[in-house]
Design a protein around this nucleic acid. Structure first.
Lengths: 344, 344
DNA sequence: AATTAGCACTCCATTTAATTGAGTGCTAAC
DNA sequence: GTTAGCACTCAATTAAATGGAGTGCTAATT
């Protein structure tokens, strides 16, 4: 059987209507409210065909039809028209004191949640590479050294080190010099034992202090820097009857609470992302990698702060989410987000 | 009317039974299962009295009685016996790599949630005072200075500063010296304009750089350091029918998502806390400061990391939560937590 | 005077039955 | 190929019937 023009039009009408109402849609509705001038009987015949082809299905005999995942997929791929939704100037929405990237993201999550009425999650930026750019050990007081490590992505880590013996200023200077010349530009994995040995040899005294300093540096670098994940509007899920069922809702919402769950896939862009597109992806039902989201759809977009620094934004709703609006909103918002990050 | 021995016993029996079953309890149940040898008719009379006194109430005629908030309060204040619950050695439960206090707390939240089947929230430690202990400005590369500020509670803040002009090493040394001598020990509020002017005067050149440095320092100090709040087991709320109603649940759980909501009261210990007790408090129904929690009870405890550094742990459940168990568990856990923090 | 058995009454919860109506598939006519 | 027409299906809603837990009150009992 072939999916001709007319069938497509009918399918589209069915999906549009269903997205709108959430109720199974019958032949009569389509016959009346679409521009096709066809009787309900004809529509019925076509519907039977569409069902056979797997694009729609019947919750039960004598009910209207609802789109299947396959139907949604077709819709998203070929029929959707991203609504050029007027996202009110994001920058105006942002509170004054927004300086840190993470604060912006937190607010973006909230903004999207209230605007779309779906649940949102936003991952903080993931810094790809980390090489040591600058290390400095300072003496803060009698018993504390402070190690400050600047990575090449300009993130800063610091760590207090408790020491028993007082270390003289000249020694510190020397240590700093050695550390910087030896470790500069190195990756974490490149900081191997041989290197550490080499450093120790150069410093004759205070081996114990050096030990703990090096240990701290190593740890700090290894420190898992899973990006923060911000969620908002989780409870919006309850607004959609098909998800509000207790066990389902609990599963979905728990996933949102266990943010760690999302680290796996929120981390990286799906593919080589061009600088223009924001790689907006739609996952419908079972296409989600998380089993607990099999009754949801998720739309994700990738933002880029600068070369190699990515993060993701995800919007989760029922499968009958308003894809057009969501994609439109995301599109518009991502553009603005780009601008905001460019300023920084 | 007087609340005599017998009435107390009956009230206790009612509450105990209700905590257990969640169903309104009738006179017959009490007559049968309590050690009082009284007929249901007598119990009924006493119940009528207890209701008149406001300790119990009837959801509707011809239903059993349930405790009122006043009843719960009496129970918690005078009849509860904290179950010496065997909290399996917390330290064993903690994953290996727990070093940071916040990681411990995160796991404590999870631990409590799974063990009690209620929702939990834990606030990170709130550092009371913040005075500058040590400041250092370093040149990281041609266009970046790094300001590191150590506060007297040994927390470290840092901030990159972008500069146009290159600043000579001697200048930096001088700046650091001035900053440290001028600002050391000062509170944020004490960093007023006069002081800033004074610093500027001492440095003749690079006023622009100094400006931005001082600005950054000020901002960094002012930066609201609301403690992190970790939540866990939010979805446990849905396990209790009296809360699982959609609108109620949404309200409560939203409050958990909007963690900021809790900052107000999670910050500080309610009163001068002795070192021994953990200031365990119970808030029943309307006693909660948050309106959205009026159908819940919350049990809070305060932990102390060291002098002046407090945080709170809260357990939220239905009003008929198992107070005995929760308080018992908290008691036991707080002791262990003390030990863990002492090690650090 | 306190306790209890007994009984009529109340009201929610559950079950069962009846009704409605949107929607379908099929057939025969257009 | 399209459509009008009709019998049929089935979830959802409404209505009625039943059951039972629990109460309050009164009169008898201890």
């Amino acid at each position: 059987m072939e999916l001709d023009e007319r069938k497509l039009k009918i399918l589209q009408a069915i999906i549009r209507t269903y997205l709108d109402t959430g109720e199974p849609v019958g032949s009569r509705t389509i016959s009346k409210f679409s521009d096709l001038k066809l009787s309900s009987a004809t529509i019925r015949n076509e519907m039977a065909d569409l069902e056979e082809m797997g694009y729609i299905l019947q919750p039960h005999t004598s009910a209207g039809r609802i789109p299947s995942d396959k139907g949604y997929r077709l819709y998203v791929d070929t029929m959707m028209e991203a609504k050029e939704s007027e996202v009110r100037n994001l920058r105006e929405e942002l509170e004054e004191k927004v300086e840190k990237v993470d604060d912006v993201l937190k607010q973006v999550a909230k903004f999207l949640a209230t605007n779309t009425n779906y649940a949102t999650m936003v991952s903080g930026p993931k810094y790809q590479s980390k090489h040591v750019k600058f290390i400095q050990i300072t003496s803060v007081d009698e018993e504390h050294l402070l190690a400050v490590i600047v990575l090449d992505n300009n993130t800063v880590r610091n760590q207090m080190i408790r020491v028993e013996e007082i270390i003289e200023p000249e020694m510190l200077l020397k240590l700093n010099f050695i550390l910087n010349t030896t470790l500069n530009g190195l990756d974490v994995v490149e900081m191997n034992l041989a290197l550490i040995q080499q450093i120790k040899e150069q410093m004759e005294t205070h081996t114990q202090v050096i030990d703990s300093v090096l240990e701290v540096i190593g740890k700090t670098l290894l420190e898992n820097d899973d990006p923060e994940i911000y969620t908002s509007g989780t409870m919006n899920i309850l607004k959609y009857p098909e998800l509000a069922d207790k066990s389902k809702a609990a599963e979905i919402i728990s996933a949102f609470e266990e943010k760690e769950t999302f680290h796996s896939w929120l981390g990286l862009p799906d593919r080589k992302m061009s600088n223009e597109t924001h790689d907006i992806q739609v996952y419908i039902g079972d296409e989600n990698s998380l089993a607990s989201m099999k009754d949801c759809s998720m739309v994700t977009a990738t933002y880029q702060i600068r070369e190699g620094v990515y993060g993701k934004i995800g919007i989760v709703g029922p499968k009958r989410m308003d894809y057009d609006k969501v994609v439109g909103t995301l599109n518009s918002l991502m553009g603005q987000l780009d601008d905001i990050f460019k300023e920084k």
